[in-house]
Design a protein around this nucleic acid. Structure first.
Lengths: 213, 213, 213, 213
DNA sequence: GATGAATGAGCATTCATTCAT
DNA sequence: CATGAATGAATGCTCATTCAT
């Protein structure tokens, strides 16, 4: 029904600037006032472009939000892939710690915007780009469990994996959304990784005798 | 700013009926059309009362939603308290299983409404009644850890407890929101309890020997 | 696609007044400025009601126009039926004169509005109520030909009847739309009747030896 | 108020092509979507020229339509003049048949476009070029009456001529607009000529004996 | 206690037109 | 000669809320 894609992509430098200004204006508005206050006229005003320019690029309000989500998620995904590459070959415990930290970190950079987008905008959680990013997270927890030596088998591997990824995803969001200093967030992130490890492997990563290999 | 309380409570049977009809109408509309379609005029029409009657009882749209949330949450809390009472004296593993199951079950009864309310309405997660219910869950995970014999110590008890309750809360919601048959939901719920136990205690509840190592 | 019926009909006297004011406002605007100037906000302003009141009764602009057409056409049809009753038993020539005159007269009363509606509004000629009124006119020319004694047969009765009614319909409109005094219009109307008679019967109604019976 | 003339006429071949493309684009759009869908941006897109190029040639939307009308009407008029020349010296009945047929034929070629232009665009019927073409038709009916031997006198020659030309003009349009095969259209056209003859002369062109009574 | 008619501020969206390149 | 990015005034329409009955 609603079209979530831009009408056309900017080609010239001049239109690229307008396009970006619109997305930045929308982000600023979301951050300051929430989704209910996001109106197309306000976005245009905030972006410093005419309302008609906005509609030159986007077919409707939803498409602006969707494109903003896509851009933000692209950053998150890039971060996650980088983290994944860095984690290759590491032991599972440092690996999960590192990746969780990168996930939280990349969301925390724009935490107010992510908070509004992911928790207040009805259609955002169903956006393909969001679901794909969640899928990447699901892979993460799987990987931990499989790599960890002596991991206790879970009786319903598929279901447990789903549950763990749901829990991890939501907890990552909650930690990222928190308005705390970075030290505190880092502590929480480490504990989150620990709890994930406990779920996936069945014991504490730092318990005596738990070193893999 | 917004007033989340009813203007006045119904005294006579006649007004009680209108009051209830409004809340039920709102719930039906949320279930069928989501929050975006919830308008005061439609609620009144769906409830079969005049729009002015609606405003006789509620100062604004938000107050209707808040009161609906309060009623639904009251049921959840009642269920949880009952479950808590039943769990007294049980071992931690059956206790957490039982309580998780009751939590999921009471939310699943009205899952579409809860889904819309808790994930699409901006102000609902911040409503006191919701935050209180979440606090109850925090207690649950704490209790499990403390009661379990030989539980592995967590390095940041307060933070870990918060994280576990966040994860449990969100996962309970996700499981309750799922459109699956009750058998499947029960399985997922049991696994959710297991994962919570693993997080809180540091080992699987059904692992051979109940003390790690 | 578009809905041409009022959303709801006024029940109380108060709303009846608003409903009528809207239609009258629309008519005034059409008369003064034409269809292009007919905007919902202007209609509401002209009618002296709030824009929301207008939308309380009509689902869209087209429905206002359609209802206005319906009301005007009802008057025309009533006039035509009356004229028909009066013409029963008369000779064809006075009968067709009389009926043409009534048709022209009832359209001329609101000639500017009819002009705009029937010649400038894309969907009006296709409106059922308009097509029905035209059908009534078709019957008229048929009747003349059949009743007139010694009428020369037309080689394609159906097609000729259709053509005559098209010509009569359009000429009635043109005569009614003319901005002339009533005497002049009456003269033209009589001549129009004469020409119609000539078409249908094949000779002049006042030619020597042309008296029927 | 509105300017109905092109801003400038194309001189070079390149601009001639743009100019023509714009008019053809407009015609295609009118045919497919009607006047309401005719926007300058769409015309430019359909024509494959930039919007600014369109405004290079035409001062506004109306001028495009007016020029399109002028071109179409020029074809009709050319046809009519040719037909007139061919009819010189013929008897009135074959003459009127021939000319009516040519009129209908030239309109029918572009019937959807003519339909939209002449019945849905407010200012088109008042355009000088249209009124001139109508005037040509008035001459036709006059000519028939005067040339026909033993024509019955009409009491108000001027008014009757005007009425006949109105009726003929509108009927020609209606027959041309009809979505029927060419054979059917030819039949209707012949009957239309017959009815015109009957109006103008007062008897059927094929009645036994060419003098009434 | 209950009603429904009435409302205006505000929203998403369109369109003819301009102007710098 | 040609362009496309940019625009603001204006349009159709919705919605939470009030008020006279």
């Amino acid at each position: 029904m609603t079209d979530f894609k831009p009408k056309k992509w900017p080609k010239q430098a001049r239109s690229k600037a307008s396009f970006d200004a619109i997305l930045e204006g929308a982000a600023r508005l979301l951050r300051r006032q929430g989704y209910e206050a996001l109106t197309t006229n306000r976005v245009a005003a905030e972006a410093g472009v005419g309302i008609a320019t906005l509609y030159e690029f986007f077919p409707n309000k939803e498409a602006i939000v969707a494109e903003l989500v896509a851009r933000l998620m692209a950053k998150v995904e890039a971060n996650m892939e980088e983290a994944f590459a860095e984690a290759v070959g590491q032991d599972p415990w440092p690996a999960v710690t590192h990746m969780t930290s990168r996930a939280v970190g990349s969301l925390a950079e724009d935490r107010e915007v992510f908070h509004v987008l992911l928790r207040q905008v009805p259609f955002v959680p169903q956006l393909p780009v969001v679901m794909e990013t969640r899928a990447a997270l699901a892979a993460l927890s799987q990987r931990v469990r499989i790599t960890a030596a002596g991991a206790l088998d879970l009786p319903m591997p598929e279901e447990d994996a789903w549950l763990i990824s749901e829990m991890l995803y939501n907890a990552i969001l909650e930690v990222a959304f928190l308005d705390v200093d970075e030290k505190k967030r880092a502590e929480l992130t480490k504990e989150l990784a620990r709890l994930t490890y406990r779920m996936a492997v069945g014991r504490d990563p730092e318990a005596a005798g738990s070193v893999s290999r």
